[in-house]
């Protein structure tokens, strides 16, 4: 089931990213294409098969995992900027791009890289399962490294949840309000990842489900806004000035 979830998420993300290529070539909101492309890459790197192939090519020391973390950081950073600007969430925008946000990003990145260097990372392993199994300090380091990797996305996601909840209740086109609801849901899911250490190993499937539903909520939410614009453009050209 988890495999299905992973591959279908990859397919959806990839399709949306591909669908954005024409508008990206026309120069419309290129960063949105970037967000989708980064998300697709992140999902690709989080699936066992592709991960092993890519990591082998990068030397087999799990550098691909570190790359995955930074790809996620990049995607969520740009997503935070776009969404907070689009929805006029000045507070969230300042929090993400201001001194605080950049400090949080730098600190977490530095800690994450340090933890990565402290680990014995030889031997490709998706999710660093095998590294953790080496025991000793490695299992603890993997745990901290994972927590650091989840901290920054959770920071951005939490900043975006209140404005999204507000947008759901505003007088916006219905599709946009549904999209805001999905973005809020995705944000809540990302924030939930902070609680992963509390999930017992027997329920580790829950972690996958939360991760991928968060990505799906974000991707589908953003795609919906785009759809809403297209719908609006079409209906707008058909009925001219009948509405106030």
């Amino acid at each position: 089931m988890i495999e299905t979830l992973q591959w279908s998420t990859l397919a959806i993300c990839g399709l949306v990213a591909a669908a954005r290529i024409p508008s990206a070539l026309r120069g419309e909101n290129r960063s949105l294409f970037g967000i989708f492309a980064l998300m697709t890459l992140a999902i690709l790197l989080s699936i066992q098969g592709p991960y092993l192939v890519i990591d082998q090519a990068m030397g087999g020391i799990n550098l691909a995992n570190l790359l995955l973390r930074f790809v996620v950081f990049g995607a969520i950073f740009f997503l935070g900027i776009r969404v907070s600007r689009g929805f006029g969430a000045d507070g969230a925008y300042r929090l993400i791009t201001g001194k605080t946000g950049l400090m949080v990003l730098l600190t977490i990145s530095a800690v994450m890289v340090a933890l990565f260097l402290l680990m014995d990372t030889s031997g490709s392993s998706a999710g660093l399962m095998a590294i953790s199994a080496k025991g000793g300090r490695n299992s603890a380091l993997v745990e901290y490294y994972g927590a650091a990797g989840r901290a920054y996305p959770a920071f951005v996601a939490l900043a975006l949840v209140p404005p999204m909840v507000r947008a759901v209740r505003e007088r916006l086109p219905l599709l946009v309000r549904i999209a805001a609801g999905l973005l809020a849901l995705g944000g809540a899911a990302v924030a939930l990842t902070l609680l992963f250490p509390l999930i017992p190993p027997s329920m580790s499937a829950a972690e996958f489900i939360i991760n991928y539903s968060a990505v799906l909520c974000y991707v589908v939410g953003l795609a919906l806004i785009w759809t809403a614009r297209i719908v609006n453009r079409h209906s707008g050209s058909r009925k001219t000035s009948t509405e106030m």
Binding site: G86, R171, W226, A228, R229, N232
Partner: peptide, 19 residues
Amino acid sequence: LRRHEHDQAQTEKIWENLG
């Protein structure tokens, strides 16, 4: 009219950034 214009401007901003 003002409320309508405000809603319109807000929607425009969303299109501009996320459309």
